[in-house]
Amino acid sequence: MENRGGPVVVLLVVRRSLDTADEAELVRRTATGDRHAFDELYRRTSPWLAVRLRRRCADDDVVADVMQETYLAVWRAAGDFAGSAASGSAVGWLWTIAANRLVDAFRRRARQQQAPVPAATTAPAAEDEVMAGRVGQELEQALLTLPPDVRQVLRAMVLDGLSVRETSLLLGVPEGTVKSRARRARIALREALS
Rank of each mutant, 00 (worst) to 15 (best):
R52E: 14
Q137I: 10
V51T: 10
L139Q: 09
A105Q: 04
E40P: 07
D61G: 12
P118C: 01
G136R: 12
V10D: 14
A37R: 06
V130L: 15
L94P: 02
P116H: 03
T20Y: 02
G92I: 08
G33L: 04
V117D: 11
R52V: 05
S84R: 15
P147K: 12
A21G: 03
E40S: 05
Q113K: 04
D60S: 09
R28K: 13
R108V: 08
E127M: 09
V103R: 10
A77L: 09
D80M: 06
A58I: 00
V10Q: 14
A24N: 07
R28V: 09
E129N: 09
L143R: 11
Q112T: 06
D59N: 13
R52H: 07
T122Q: 13
A98F: 06
Q112V: 03
D34I: 02
V135Q: 13
N100E: 05
L26N: 02
Q68G: 01
V66P: 01
D65H: 02
P116Y: 00
V13N: 09
Q68V: 07
D19W: 08
R109G: 04
F38I: 01
D19K: 07
T96I: 01
A115D: 02
T70C: 07
R151I: 12
W48F: 08
S87H: 14
T32H: 12
S46D: 03
G79T: 06
Y71T: 00
D149V: 14
D104L: 09
W48V: 07
T70H: 09
A82K: 07
S84I: 00
